[in-house]
Design a protein around this nucleic acid. Sequence first.
DNA 1: TAAATAGTGTCTCTAAGACATTATGTG
DNA 2: CACATAATGTCTTAGAGACACTATTTA
Lengths: 243, 243
Amino acid sequence: MTTNQPSDTTEALTATQPRETPWPTVGVSVVIFSIQPGAQQELSVLLVRRNKAPYADQWALPGGWVRTGEALEAAAQRHLHTKAGLTSTYLEQLYTFGRPDRDPREHRIAVAYYALVSSTAAQLPEAQGDREARWFPADQVPTPLAFDHDEILSYALWRLRNKVSYAYVAYQLLPPTFTLADLRKVYEVILGHPLDPTNFRRKVEASGTIVSTGKRVEGGAHRPPQLYRCKLTPDQLLTGPPS
Amino acid sequence: MTTNQPSDTTEALTATQPRETPWPTVGVSVVIFSIQPGAQQELSVLLVRRNKAPYADQWALPGGWVRTGEALEAAAQRHLHTKAGLTSTYLEQLYTFGRPDRDPREHRIAVAYYALVSSTAAQLPEAQGDREARWFPADQVPTPLAFDHDEILSYALWRLRNKVSYAYVAYQLLPPTFTLADLRKVYEVILGHPLDPTNFRRKVEASGTIVSTGKRVEGGAHRPPQLYRCKLTPDQLLTGPPS
DNA sequence: TAAATAGTGTCTCTAAGACATTATGTG
DNA sequence: CACATAATGTCTTAGAGACACTATTTA
C-alpha cells in the first residue's frame, strides 16, 4: 500500500503498466501564459521537460500532486512556484480532465489551471531545479506533449482567446505601466489578427480601465506615446473590452 | 485502510471528525435543471434528502464517488441515473470544488456538473430508491444545503443564465416539439425577465435552429400556434441566440 | 363579432468598424 | 522639413429593442 502513497518521487516508477489504485488520484496542471518581451512578441507557454517515465524527455505542462488538506488553487500556485520559479497574479481554473487512461500508471485526474504572468516577471525562468523549463510560442509547442497535455493546452488557448474578448485579462500580461500600443499588441497576439488602433483606443478609454501616468516613453525615434496604468474596479474584472 | 475504501456505504460513517486520507478523494455532484410542466413553469432543481451524517436530513445535490477506471462524465451520468432516475441529454462540467474542509469527513474534491432534462422526462422522479428526491424552484431551495452545495448551485445558475444567452441550450429543456411561446418562456424563466415576442421570433427564425413541423397546437381557446422542432447543426451548438 | 394570441412591418438608437484627418514628437 | 507614429473626428452599417399594426382562430 505504501507504493500507492503519493509523493513527487512516485513519478520515478518505471513500470508503465497500469496500477490499480483504490480510487482515482488528483493532480493539477498549469498552463502558464506570457508574452515574451523583445522583438517577436508572441503568446508563449512554459513547458518543462520530463526526466522520468512515462513520457521521459517529452515536454509537459508543469504540475503535480494535490496534497491532502491543500486547496486546489494553492496546489497550482505551489507547482507554479517550485516547477517554474514564477509567481502569478492571475490563476484561473480551466477544466478537470479525468479520462481513466490519460496517465498510463493509474487513474489520475488533473484539475487544469491557466496562469497569466507579466512580461517583466516572465524573463527569469530557465533551468529551474533539475528540470529544463522553456518558453515556447503557444502555437509552436513540441508536439506531442506528454499525457493529454496537448488537449489541455488547446483548451486553455481557446479559453484565453475567448476570455480576452469579454474580460479585462490582458493587463495581467503587461508590466505595471504600458502604452496603448503595448496593450493593443497583447490583444492582437492573443486574438491572432490586427486591430484598428483608432477604435481600440476609443473602446479602452471608454472602459475607464486605464489612467495616464503623465509620463511618456523616451528614446523612441518618433512621437513618444503616453504611459498608462491599469485601474480596474472590482466590477470591471468580469466584463469587458475590445474584440 | 479498508475503511478508506470508497463505496456508497462509506457515507454511513457517523464519525464527524476529519479523517486523514493518504490523498484527496474525488466525487461528482450534479445540478439537474428542468422546467416543470404545468401552471407555474419555473426553473427547477432536483435535490435529494440525505439520510446519513453528516448533514443528515438536509437536502443535497445528487452525486457520489468516481470509480477507478470510470470517466468523470460517466460517473455523473451514473449518479444522475441511480440517484434521480433520470437520463439527461445534456451534461456539462461546471467547476471543481476542492476546499479541504468542504466535507467534514475528509478532503474530498467534487467535480460539479450540470444537466438539463426536458420537461417531459422530468415528470417521473419522486421517491427514487430509498432517498427522497424532489424538484425545487431554483431560487427557493431549502437553504442551507449540505456541504458547499449552495455555492455549487449558485454557480450553476450563473453559468446557465450566462450560457443561455450565447448558446442554444434552451432546447434541451423542451420536449421534441414546442411552440415559439414555449421556447420564449424557457428564456424568460432562466433569464428572469420578459422578452419581446416580436424580436424573439425574429432572432430565433434568423438563427435557423428551428423548423416548423406543419402541425399546430389543438384545443387552445384561440388562434393556435405552430409546433416547431429543433434543428441544430453542429456549429450552432456553441454560438447563439436571444438575450 | 369580440377576444385573444399569432405573426408582420417599421422606426430608433447604439456600438462596431472603416477610414480620412490632424497633432506632435525625432532625425 | 521629412517622416513616423500618436491621437481625433466622422461616416456607414448591423443589430437590438420598442412598438404600432395585421392575421387568424375559437367562443
